[in-house]
Amino acid sequence: MNLKDKIKIILLIVCFLFTSSCATVITSVMPPTTFVKKGDVKLGPVISYDFNIQPIENNIYRVIQIPICEQEQRVFVVQKKQTRGPLAALVELPIFGLGLVDWVVADAVAQNSKKVVDKGYVPTGEFKKCGAPSPAKGIEVVVQFPLSGSEKKLYTDENGNLDLNPLFASYPNSSVNLFVRRGGMTYYLTSIYVP
């Protein structure tokens, strides 16, 4: 082995030392990146109601309530190192084919660094109907008389019915607005013209 060959071998070893495992080292050294992965969607608990009114008889109405839920989505926070150094692995490839090994190891390092934190279900801000309509029993209904600015409180019976006959007898030729009051919230129901 002459000097030229020795230099070649030394250069190859130096190349091997400097280039092998580059992608693995870069992948290991770089900090992990964090991203959010979204999971399945479900409806949360009932947070409010949508109210409707149905005429039953002359001036007797049934108040119907439809539960409203907020949509929730499962969220995972994923922390993972990214596989880096593809160029280094490519350079290493002609040298004993080590580039491929380096890339596989770098990818394994990245996969091993993966940490998933389940943040549970979080509200999406979308509201959907989440139950069958049912009569609103014993609910407070506010009757507003816009002309006089006065209000009257009524309650629905066990069938969700509201008898407006006694009230309308006292206030002919007026328009009234009906509101449902539940849990400190007021919902507009409908307006009725009293002939």
């Binding site: 816009p146 002309l147 307006s191």
Partner: peptide, 16 residues
């Protein structure tokens, strides 16, 4: 303003 009565009779709805 308060809605004049003629509009209420015509079917307009006023909600203060």
């Amino acid at each position: 303003f308060k809605l004049p009565v003629k509009y209420i009779e015509q079917g307009y709805v006023e909600i203060p």
